[in-house]
Design a protein around this nucleic acid. Structure first.
Length: 252
DNA sequence: TTCCAGGTGCATA
DNA sequence: TATGCACATGGA
């Protein structure tokens, strides 16, 4: 897994991924993966199985800086996730490390999500509405607790269905108006929640990659602009290959 | 002990 | 519009 979702657990021969109130077990074999789930259609879409990644990789391989990352992360897919879960997850992710993000999000499921038997569902908006700032603190959400409470309150008035057909930049403007959502988190929501691949989330890792391979710049707004100009509709895919590669070789 | 993590919000100029 | 700083928390 590569940092797109935080609700998964390693197993002896693969991993179990939790999305919304569903789960899928992914078992790794020598030449293929097997996905075991009761929700076949949901996870067929979730793992983006209908998209031709071979074609995408061929185009992106023209860029020298992407050749090794594509080889290294050849199995990467852009996960099409539940919108509410993506929004909350990436607000929690801001200025945080993956281990701690995972811990907070599992605690959120366990304390406020429906008991599904052998796991807990991600809380519905209705359940989230009842969580206080103090309770978010108790989960370990730190200073994001107040942002989360404010955000959840704002979400009550949002009709995401009507957003889905709109242009990327239109949705982005609406997202950054919400509490806890800035340009980077908005890009992640657009990519993993709305399936918009013409975005390039720029975080601390991508900033490093950019300065290593593409140019010299510390302004993330400008880096994003340059990279989306370069990769256009394939920006989101390019970002994932670069992110995964960079993070794998620079952290534990 | 200090630095850093998939940054954002807010004050200041 | 642009820059700088504070913000919880835990691991390295």
């Amino acid at each position: 897994m590569c940092g797109q979702i935080f609700s998964y657990k390693q197993t002896a021969n693969g991993f179990v991924v939790y999305s919304q109130n569903k789960k899928a077990e992914v078992v790794e074999f020598e030449k293929f993966f097997e996905i075991r789930t009761k929700n076949i259609d949901y996870f067929k879409n979730f793992f983006d199985l209908e998209t031709d990644y071979k074609k995408i990789k061929n185009v992106l391989s023209r860029e020298k800086a992407l050749q090794d990352p594509i080889k290294f992360g050849s199995g990467i897919r852009i996960l099409k996730q539940d919108l509410l879960e993506v929004i909350i997850s990436f607000v929690v992710s801001a200025n945080n490390n993956i281990k701690r993000i995972t811990k907070i999000l599992f605690a959120l499921r366990e304390n406020f999500g429906e008991n599904m038997g052998d796991f807990f569902a991600f809380p519905t908006l209705k359940k989230l509405e009842n969580i206080t700032e103090k309770q978010f603190f108790a989960l370990g959400a730190g200073y994001r607790s107040s942002q989360l409470v404010k955000l959840i309150n704002q979400l009550k008035a949002v009709d995401f269905e009507s957003w889905k057909e709109q242009k990327t930049e239109t949705i982005k403007n609406k997202l950054v108006a919400l509490s806890g959502i800035g340009p980077k988190v908005a890009d992640c929501i657009l990519l993993f929640g709305f399936g918009k691949t013409d975005v390039f989330p720029v975080d601390t890792w991508i900033e490093k990659v950019y300065n290593q391979y593409f140019g010299t710049c510390k302004n993330r707004i400008i880096i994003r602009k340059e990279l989306t100009k370069k990769f256009e509709n394939l920006s989101g895919y390019a970002q994932q290959y670069l992110f995964y590669f960079q993070r794998s070789f620079n952290s534990k």
